[in-house]
Design a protein around this nucleic acid. Structure first.
Lengths: 235, 235
DNA sequence: CCCACTTTGTGCACCGGTTCACAAAGGGAC
DNA sequence: GTCCCTTTGTGAACCGGTGCACAAAGTGGG
């Protein structure tokens, strides 16, 4: 991949920084609503739950948008971060799978607020097709490719059972989509150039359980040598 | 914090490894269902979507459970990972906030499957309290502390609007809960020793949008020097 | 204009995590 | 028992990201 860019400033923003920009944006929007004109890195960092040095380094990757001795202009910084994240344009999102989760996502206000527009709902169940949810009519998943093209969908949210996810991912990718948010509990195989993000409720709970166990173990005096495969269990 | 453990093997499992163990577990369960007795690090790594060296190093933190020249015993490894994650015990989970998302979570099968049991649903809306969802009756959030104690809840899922989340977090922590899965779009402040995990749909979409913009920019020849605050916008 | 004060932007040391590459260990054939 | 093949477990180099600490830059008061 060629790395030559016309900009003098190299535009390689670290992934970890990108993941935090939405956090800063949210904190800044709260501040703008409360009428603050400027904010220091220290205050913004506290509001976003990070340390101030990290915040300053993150922002420095976008450019030099602060004023020493003063801080950052709230509105200006909101604009710069929004632009960097691509939220100044509007993104058509299709939700595939209109079960409990798909419905929740369709009705979730947080989507619409910032540049995202739910443009289509699709499902395979004839029982569900035709339902009206969040101002949209559920379409049959057979129409997937046509809908993606017609509505200029660029981001697809997969909220289907695990078994269907890979096949659907293949189809949306074939239809030209390169950004997928996957809620199905499977590891999707995708070609180079396609971005997948995964949200897995069950994994999050398991991570919590690990730490919870660790905490209670500590109080009750450790795992009591339970290192071995118990006799009772059958290999 | 005292770091003396009776075990010879130091039990400090890296956070990154903990986050992948559920992935391995899922892949292994699939293999067990298909009747595989043993699996090599290479095959398991492919199924989990990681590289095999990483997989082996991850598993080595749990102990030396493989056989050189052969691979890992599927059932045995399932047991070891489950035990490490604390899934051999059952965890009572309370879901606070029974809106669209809370309902979806309550009905989500993936919870129950592995050691987790939804033990309570709570909401502030009198309209919702008393509803029967997934075999449970929604209780009023005033009962929060009593319910946590009575049902021995150790993990709380917050699926409320952002405005209510911090206050509710404070209450569940005061009631003795130290593991929280937060879906509300706010940064929660919590004391030392409390584990928070956050799932934020809007942030995931924004990260996708960033990369999507980057990809389309590349095709259309870059951001065309759009570095400056446009004249039209009012500071 | 100059000085004291505030706050940004960043060089640098550090740290956790990833990857490579290989020695060690076990299995199976003969 | 010996040899060859497979696959694990891990030392070591590497890499991205974090946090400290400070110089540079700007503000406001006198």
């Amino acid at each position: 991949m060629i790395r030559r860019l016309s900009q003098a400033r190299e535009r390689g923003i670290p992934e970890a920084t990108v993941a935090r920009l939405p956090l800063y944006l949210r904190a800044l929007n709260g501040m703008a609503e409360r009428g603050l004109a400027t904010v220091s890195s220290e205050d913004l960092a506290v509001a976003a739950g990070v340390n101030s040095a990290k915040l300053r380094k993150d922002l420095s990757h976008l450019g030099s948008y602060g004023t020493r001795g003063v801080g950052y202009d709230v509105e200006y910084l909101i604009y710069q971060i929004s632009r960097e994240l691509g939220l100044t344009q509007d993104w058509a999102v299709a939700i595939v799978g209109v079960g409990n989760l798909g419905r929740a996502l369709a009705n979730y206000g947080g989507f619409v607020s910032r540049g995202f527009r739910v443009a289509a709902l699709l499902d395979a169940d004839p029982e569900v097709v035709g339902d009206h949810i969040a101002g949209l009519t559920v379409e049959h998943v057979d129409e997937l490719e046509a809908v993606i093209r017609r509505r200029a969908v660029s981001i697809v949210v997969l909220a289907t059972p695990g078994a269907a996810a890979q096949q659907l991912a293949d189809r949306v990718i074939a239809a030209g989509v390169t950004s997928i948010l996957n809620f199905a509990p499977v590891v999707l195989a995708v070609p180079e150039g396609v971005d997948i993000r995964k949200v897995d409720l069950s994994i999050e709970l398991q991570i919590l359980a690990f730490h919870e166990q660790r905490k209670t173990d500590r109080m009750t005096g450790g795992p009591a040598m339970a290192e071995e495969w118990p006799e009772a269990v059958d290999l």
